[in-house]
């Protein structure tokens, strides 16, 4: 290596450029690509702070001549943004808490406990990872619609509307994720057994071992799970669309999609509302992205 670079230096500026060319081309390609990836978001932000005459002008203006934050207040009021936020935060918080808790409990059972039927249950769950939610939308919808003793239904699920048009209905399919169960199982399998054994010798019960030793030591895997659960729930669209009819129960994605149809070409307000919907996710992503990358390999297997 040292020899090579010395030779290069002695061959004059052309050789230096030739040696650097691959790196320069790499940068040109990567930066051009990154520009294409980010441009739509930049354009969204740019549009959201522009007065209409600049949006519909003859030229493209990336940086507006004057800031028009009126679009944000308009969008805020027209979409009933506080309501959308409260609903989305409620649905997302329940999904995150429940998927972390149930995932870690089930993961512990599969990783550490011996019981009859373990392999059978395990492989049954493994198989369900292959089934995307979209193809089960009809039976799950019927399950929610005919949910016993909810929304005026009797014990057999007849007579009312079940969990349709309730936040509980939106939450129901997101209480547990198979992906989470496997994520935690994998993590606990790699956890040193000696610590647990020492605790058991000292008289700690199994539940105590789980609660006092495993749970406090699973922060990385809980972070990964929480971030995935957050993204799925916050960005979920099809299921809330199917369940919720009433405006006061809509999540932010749903409110946004309807706003789009109602407002037609009010692009400035639409983009302002989009910014408000995406900013929490991007902030969280920037702070927690190290968790995403570690779990990213299996992200295609969401179940």
């Amino acid at each position: 290596m040292a020899n090579q670079s010395m030779r290069r230096r002695s061959q004059g500026s052309f050789a230096v450029w030739e040696a650097r060319l691959p790196l320069i081309l790499t940068y040109v390609f990567l930066i051009a690509g990154a520009f294409v990836m980010v441009m739509p978001f930049a354009w969204m932000v740019s549009t959201s702070v522009k007065p209409d005459r600049e949006i519909f002008g003859d030229t493209i203006r990336w940086i507006p001549t004057e800031l028009d934050l009126q679009n944000y207040t308009d969008a805020f009021e027209q979409t009933n943004m506080p309501r959308l936020f409260v609903n989305t935060v409620a649905v997302t918080a329940v999904a995150v808490a429940s998927q972390v808790l149930l995932g870690s409990m089930a993961g512990y059972a599969f990783a550490r406990l011996q019981f009859r039927g373990k392999m059978l249950i395990f492989f049954a769950l493994l198989t369900t990872m292959m089934v995307p939610f979209e193809v089960l939308i009809i039976p799950v919808f019927l399950l929610i619609r005919f949910f016993p003793l909810a929304g005026g239904n009797d014990l057999l699920g007849q007579g009312g509307t079940g969990l349709i048009n309730t936040l509980g209905g939106v939450m129901f399919p997101n209480f547990v994720s198979v992906f989470g169960v496997f994520l935690f199982r994998q993590f606990y399998l790699g956890f040193p057994k000696e610590i647990e054994e020492a605790a058991i010798v000292d008289g700690c019960s199994r539940i105590g071992v789980y609660w006092r030793i495993l749970v406090p030591n699973s922060k990385p895997v809980m972070g990964t799970m929480a971030l995935f659960a957050f993204l799925w729930s916050w960005n979920d669209f099809l299921w809330p669309l199917v369940v919720v009819k009433e405006d006061s129960l809509k999540t932010i994605q749903l409110g946004l999609s309807v706003f789009d149809q109602e407002q037609g070409t009010a692009w400035a307000e639409l983009m302002a509302a989009s910014v408000m919907a995406v900013v929490p996710v991007i902030i969280l992503y920037i702070f927690l992205q190290r968790f995403l990358v570690s779990g990213g390999l299996t992200s295609g297997l969401k179940g």
């Binding site: 990567l30 930066i31 690509g33 990154a34 990836m37 980010v38 441009m39 739509p40 978001f41 354009w43 969204m44 549009t47 949006i55 519909f56 493209i60 993204l231 916050w234 960005n235 669209f237 994605q253 946004l256 999609s257 789009d260 070409t265 692009w267 639409l270 983009m271 989009s274 919907a277 995406v278 996710v281 991007i282 992503y285 920037i286 992205q289 995403l292």
Partner: peptide, 30 residues
């Protein structure tokens, strides 16, 4: 650069669709 390339994955499909509708707009689209 990795963060920038990953950004569209984090954004929701509704927001992405909204932005692209505006970019594809026949009259004033980018």
């Amino acid at each position: 650069l990795r963060t920038l390339y990953y950004l569209p994955v984090v954004s929701s499909v509704v927001v992405s669709a909204m932005i692209w509708r505006w970019i594809y707009s026949p009259q004033h689209g980018l």
